[in-house]
Each structure stands twice: as C-alpha cells, then as structure tokens.
Design a protein around this nucleic acid. Sequence first.
DNA 1: TCCGGATTAGCACTTGGTACTAATACCAGT
DNA 2: ACTGGTATTAGTACCAAGTGCTAATCCGGA
Lengths: 191, 191
Amino acid sequence: MPKRERQRQLEISLEQNPFLTDEELSKQFKVSVQTIRLDRLECGIPELRERLKTVAARTMEAEVKSLQSDEIIGEIVDIVLDKRAVSIFDVTDDHVFRRSGIARGHHLFAQANSLAVAVLDDDLALTVTSDLHFLKPVRSGDRVIARAIVDKERSNNKRTFVDVISTVENETVFTGEFQMYQTTDHSGREI
Amino acid sequence: MPKRERQRQLEISLEQNPFLTDEELSKQFKVSVQTIRLDRLECGIPELRERLKTVAARTMEAEVKSLQSDEIIGEIVDIVLDKRAVSIFDVTDDHVFRRSGIARGHHLFAQANSLAVAVLDDDLALTVTSDLHFLKPVRSGDRVIARAIVDKERSNNKRTFVDVISTVENETVFTGEFQMYQTTDHSGREI
DNA sequence: TCCGGATTAGCACTTGGTACTAATACCAGT
DNA sequence: ACTGGTATTAGTACCAAGTGCTAATCCGGA
C-alpha cells in the first residue's frame, strides 16, 4: 500500500476509533510503529492521550447542553405560571436540513411544546392535541423567540389551551395551539 | 479538613471535572500528591487517563446515537417513496418526564414529522401545518411504530398531505396530519 | 551506479501515573 | 512517659504511550 493511501486510511481509522494506539495501528497497517508516528506527524494527528482528551471534552460540553435542553428546549427567559412564558432557542447547524439549511420542524415544535408544558403550574401537564403552522423557514443562526399564552376563556379544570407564537426578528415563523391535559384539580384556585 | 470530608470533596471535584491530575488536586486540597493517590485508591477512583477513556467512550456512543437520530427520529423499516413508510422508535428514560414517566410529546412528533419528510421523494420537503392528537400516554420501554401514508386525493403538485398513525402494541397512541410543501415539480411524474 | 524518499531501529526524555517501602507526625489510651 | 494506630509525606522502581532526535537500511528510478 502506498504511503498516501495509508495516511488516508489512518485518518479514517482514527476518526472512527480514536482509541487506537500507535502499536495497534502498526499491526493494522503492517508497518513499524515509527512509520505510524511519522504518518501522524505529517497528518497533524495528535497522540492517543490528546485525542481522548478532546473527545472527552466534547462529551462534557454535550452533556451540559443536553442536560438543559432535555427538560426544556430553548431557554426560558420569562414565565408567569398559568399565564404566559417566553423562551429563546438559538438555531445551529445541528437543527437544520443539510441540503436546504432550513430548520427541521420538530425543533420548533419541541420549543413550543416544552414551553406550553412549562407554563402550566402542574406536576404533570400532557399535550392532547395541537394545531401547528410553520409559516416561514427558519435557518441556522436564527434566534427563535417563543411566546406562550394560556387561553383562560377556553380552558376548564381538565383542559387548558395554550397558544404559542414563535418569531425570528419580529416575524412570525411558527404558531401552535396546544390543548393540554392537567392532572391536578385547578378549580379551587384563582383563575 | 478531615480525611473523610476531603475524599467526599475529591469525588465531587472529579465528577465535575475528570480532567484534573493528581498534582492539580494536591494543590487544590493542600496535601501531597501521595495523599491524593491514597484517597483515590480508597475511593476506587481511577487515574486521569482511565477517567478520560471512559468519558470519551460515552461520547462516541452518544455521537453514534445522535447521528442516526438526527436525520430520522426512529429507524425506518419500510418505505415506498411518495406512498407510505414505517418507522420504529424505542422510548427510553431519556424521552420521558421524570416525574410521570410519560414520553414528552415532541419525541412522538419528531418521529412522525421526520417520517413524513422521508416518505416524500423530494430533496426538500417542509412541514407547513399539522394537526396532532396525543391519544394515550407512551412510556419508557414502549416501542412506537409510526405508519405514514401519503394522501394522494388531497395532494396537488405543491402541497402534499401525509397522515401518520403511531401505535404501541397495536393501540393507537398518536395521530398526525401533515401538510407538506415540496419544492420540486411532481406534476410530470406518476402521481 | 548513485540519489532520495520511505521505512525502520535505537536511545534519551516526558507525563501521569502504579506499587511498594520507609520515615515522620500526631493524637489517644494506659 | 511510652506505646499504638492512623494519617501523611517522601522516595524509589517501574509502566504505557508517547516526543524528538540520529542513524541505518531498503528500494526504485534516472
């Protein structure tokens, strides 16, 4: 196998499995450990420990991100329980279709839906039905601001209606009407 | 600081930041490196490199998972383009409300919506509106099977209607009607 | 035949450890 | 005051997986 091709394969191997030591690689490619070291040097591939360090660093970051983004998609910036709430969601490359660069619908839905759940002062609010309108495409880099308002007129003690309007730079990109089910009895409360 | 307390703090420190070397820890706790080593030994905390290895391993796993789960939520098991498609989504603890154990709505939506996108033989299909019904709660461990059917009667060359029905053990848990926008012109094709 | 890139080998040194031994410190009990 | 036990510190030998360097060898083409 020619040198160029081996180096290409090496990069692929390490991308798939950064845990390989030079010795393991030398066996895989049937060359000496020194050759592997020279290859890594030429390709600018760091040693095992450095690779693990960066991979591990990625995890820590990702875990912090996913921790906060699991409960609520987006960040809640204002909330008055049982009345209204606002959340901000920054769209990144992770959220868009690669070909078109347009955000996948389920991320906008997730922001709106989790905001609708959060605005209800209930241990357990579930979505029953919802009616969605995706009005304008949202792209990577856009900051989506979702505003949820509890519609008290149409709500009763088991069903609550929450309207969510999401905007990017004051233009409405998404609207959702959520009919929510609440377990606890709210009839005794102030409405 | 007493030994017990120091060891407790040590565990906390390393959980938050597994990248700390014994030397850094010894400075942090103002004891010798050897003491830190003894503490790790007693608490069963592995050395830096082992810690990074396990953290990095977690990442790789997570990345494989999120890679496949980003394009399509769930796994497509059957598809006839522009006609129908089926996907399977296994609900885990990651998808449910901690308190109630019931799956968050946006995961069911994501499965259905991404299936609706996939079934359309188009580089760029976008969701315009959708009408959702969450009929029964879905729990961790449930296997959700989503079936998408393209409604040809109501579709024209710019708007396509896709109906998705999701079931768990033959019971319908979710239905969604998706009105999709397609960029490419399908009028010349077989319906 | 000679040149040059590619490969291999060998050695000293580095990091962040393990495993082990030994010394020291300090406090309580008798 | 002496002894015992725990805690801490110091020091040594060793290891894995490298870097950085020099030197030797191989192998193919002009």
